[in-house]
Amino acid sequence: MGALALIAAGIVAGLGALGAGIGNGLVISKTVEGIARQPEAKSTLQTTMFIGVGLIEVLPIIGVVLAFIFYGMAQ
């Protein structure tokens, strides 16, 4: 149980971070590109990025919290 819980913690934190990293990179690159093309749309793009990054970051936060709980169970 202990070893499996540690493996689960590693997988959940690692894959969550990987997905969030790719997602955040795509969102930020497209927003910066959009602002470079249309500086007058900065306000709208900023708000869209704010919502997008918020939703993307939910997954790794929950993943790391779960990993922490699994780690506690394994001890």
Partner: peptide, 10 residues
């Protein structure tokens, strides 16, 4: 509730 505000944003 750790994700409450983020879903509220959506």
């Amino acid at each position: 509730s750790l994700v409450f505000a983020q879903f509220l944003l959506l």
